[in-house]
Design a protein around this nucleic acid. Structure first.
Lengths: 127, 127
DNA sequence: CTATCTGCAAACGTTTTGCATAACA
DNA sequence: TGTTATGCAAAACGTTTGCAGATAG
């Protein structure tokens, strides 16, 4: 593993609650004086994900990366302010497995993102 | 509603099991002699979705549209052959609502797609 | 007649790729 | 040394937009 990839991984692991886009990773590293191009960031992210060190989710047309050190979870996104909460419901996971199994599929992964309005954003909303 | 939009809607309603990308809609209509540009297709799809006539899901970086006439359901996609199965588990829906509520969110929507290998594609796979 | 829709082509934002150079092991 | 990673810039990809002309109601 090269210095660049180590830097990308270290950055992502530094803020466990954050969901980084590739562009944000590049900017954050440059702000610390690392000279890195977007292509390298994308390649590093792909490699780290293949190694299972980071995980990715996609929403609003952009892929976001986070450390894979944390336990598996899904996401709840506020469509107004962009706030992201994580949640994990074993019953949902189990039912997904069952749904796949019932149709003869071997389940390999899933994407589950809930969209809504967070408590703060509901306020000014007439709700 | 114009002839073009009617044609887009009719096409999508014609094959209830199919999940159309914008490009596929354009091609299918052109194959039937309808002269239509992609921009018009995208605009028609957006309008039809806003009216609640069609629904969309996104996976593999592409948005796909289907008739909204069917009941709500989620998707199970074979990552090898692209086959799509639909499923609906009321328990999952309920747990999603609960997860959002527990965090103060008002749930407005969700994206749930399961990825795996269908029965046929598991065969040649050493499984 | 006015509002809306259309085609085209250009622009957009994100991601990938080609290639020559640089760093790794 | 040979293999792999990097920077840059260009291309690819799906999607959106500006605009002048066409169509709907």
């Amino acid at each position: 593993m090269t210095a660049h990839r180590r830097a990308v991984l270290a950055l992502i692991e530094e803020e466990p609650g954050r969901h980084w886009s590739a562009e944000e990773v590049a900017e954050a590293l440059r702000a610390r004086g690392v000279r890195i191009g977007v292509a390298t960031v994308y390649r590093a992210l792909a490699a780290l994900e293949a190694e299972g060190r980071i995980a990715s989710v996609q929403w609003h047309g952009r892929r976001r990366y986070e450390s894979a050190a944390k336990a598996h979870h899904d996401h709840l996104v506020c469509i107004r302010c962009g706030r992201v909460e994580e949640f994990c419901d074993p019953a949902i996971e189990e039912k997904q497995e069952a749904a796949a199994y019932a149709r003869g599929f071997r389940l390999l992964g899933h994407q589950l993102v809930l969209f809504g309005l967070c408590a703060d954003c509901q306020e000014g909303d007439g709700v």
